[in-house]
Amino acid sequence: MRITVLGGCGAWPAAGQACSGYLVEHEGFTVLLDPGCAVLPALLARLPPDAVDAVLVTHGHPDHCADLSPLLRARVLGPTVTDALPVYAPQGAVDAVLALDSPHLLADAYDLRAIADDSRYEVGPFRLTTRALPHHVPNLGMRLTADGVTLAYTGDTGPSPDIAVLADSANVLLAEATFVEETPVDDRAYLSTARQAGEYAAAAGVGRLVLTHLWPGTEPNAAADAARHAFNGPVDIAGPSLSLTP
């Protein structure tokens, strides 16, 4: 399994960067996990649009799904004829994005597959397991496993014991860490800190922690140091140059 970060900005893309977007590849099968704002240009710098075999969406905020629209346009209007792209998302999560174009244009572009909490799916060579985690809108944390290697991804989440359940013994935990040490009062039930991500990584016994969704302007070293208060394993920041083969 290879994991490549296309973007990891929270809320909006910083200059020259993208919001949440990750490629997960195994045995020639490519999953795009969360096509957030500005992810498509980062993807196209590496792969043509028809190289994506499936899209997974954790929730319906634009920094996690907005670039599904231009991805589908690139596949439909580009020179290569493509099959319908399987899109796995919580019920209703991508309705607004898909409504940006006429139904006629995208009629054969995608195959929307609703996914639910605490369920299992087969996505190419991957086994996908889902778990609902608390956020401002319905959000599904995802666990992808292939050939004994596991990536756990929180999407966006507030504090929950289910994070450690989702990430149990995972090789890599990709964890939302919008804030460094303290979350503003209004968001405490719905977003997390780097320190909390480190605590969940330690509780789950993961091999590596990757912090993502940092608020633009956050000092990455400060976030990594906060996570290391509880987690003794490797800690990375989800930047556009990060690629891992667990």
Rank of each mutant, 00 (worst) to 15 (best):
T183C: 14
D50E: 15
V5Y: 08
Y88M: 02
Y153T: 09
W12H: 14
G158I: 11
N221E: 15
V52C: 01
N171P: 00
D187P: 00
R195Q: 14
L106R: 06
G205F: 13
R208T: 15
A222G: 02
A204D: 04
D187K: 06
A189K: 08
D168R: 15
T150D: 10
G21K: 05
V87E: 05
Y200P: 00
V81W: 09
T150S: 14
D111E: 15
E27T: 03
T30H: 08
R73V: 12
E122S: 13
A45D: 15
P70Q: 07
G198Q: 07
R2V: 10
P184I: 00
V210F: 11
V57D: 04
I163E: 12
A93I: 10
D118A: 15
G141R: 05
L44G: 02
A230T: 06
L174T: 02
A170M: 07
D67V: 03
A74M: 03
T129P: 01
R143K: 08
S169Y: 11
T212V: 12
R143H: 11
A146T: 08
V24H: 02
P49L: 07
F179N: 03
P159S: 14
G21Y: 11
A227M: 06
S69P: 00
L68C: 07
Q91N: 04
A93R: 01
R75W: 03
R113Y: 10
T178F: 06
D187W: 10
H26W: 14
P246S: 02
A203W: 08
G148T: 07
